[in-house]
């Protein structure tokens, strides 16, 4: 079997460790060892954004991120947004605005939105559209997703 490397990192606020295969992507590690199925594999080539996670404050395509590179980093996946305190305002906005159909792109969209809002809580419609250009949705035509980000943006700006 291929070479593995022990890594320690922070996953959704908790310290974790794993033996990561050197050839594995972060996506494979999260979906496999950590059973975090919310991070979706849809293209595996960095072209669709379904596997978006936030690493050290930056959104990344986890399919193109080597698992071993997570060592020492802070990782946030969609599962980290829902806690005892309730669901994240971004998740609520996607529900309220009808931004979800099949839902397969949704976790990636939500994580990218979290990232965009962390950079700029008052986005213009154009900034929202450009911010989502790496996230493909085949169901909605994006309009309701854009509305959801705008709604979440209004909450974040308060």
């Amino acid at each position: 079997m291929s070479l593995t490397q022990k890594i320690i990192f922070t996953l959704n606020g908790k310290p974790v460790q794993a033996d990561a295969q050197v050839t594995a992507s972060a996506l494979e590690l999260l979906r496999g060892a950590f059973e975090l199925g919310g991070t979706k594999l849809a293209c595996g080539e960095g072209e669709c954004g379904a596997c978006t996670i936030i690493v050290d404050g930056r959104s990344r395509n986890s399919c193109l991120l080597p698992a071993v590179d997570l060592d020492g980093r802070e990782v946030l996946t969609v599962e980290g947004l829902w806690s005892e305190d309730g669901i994240d305002p971004v998740q609520q906005a996607f529900i309220d605005e009808g931004a979800i159909q099949c839902g397969f792109c949704t976790p990636g969209m939500i994580m990218q939105t979290k990232y965009l809002l962390s950079k700029n809580p008052r986005m213009t419609p154009e900034e929202i559209e450009r911010g989502l250009e790496g996230n493909v949705c085949r169901c909605t035509g994006y309009k309701k997703i854009i509305s959801a980000v705008a709604a979440a943006s209004a909450v974040a700006a308060e």
Binding site: G37, K40, F94, G98
Partner: peptide, 21 residues
């Protein structure tokens, strides 16, 4: 009436387990 989709909350928080998962 504007009604929220029933499956949306589970999909938003990634409770939904797709066949792929």
């Amino acid at each position: 009436k504007r009604v929220t989709k029933l499956d949306a909350p589970d999909k938003a928080v990634a409770r939904t387990r797709y066949i792929n998962d």
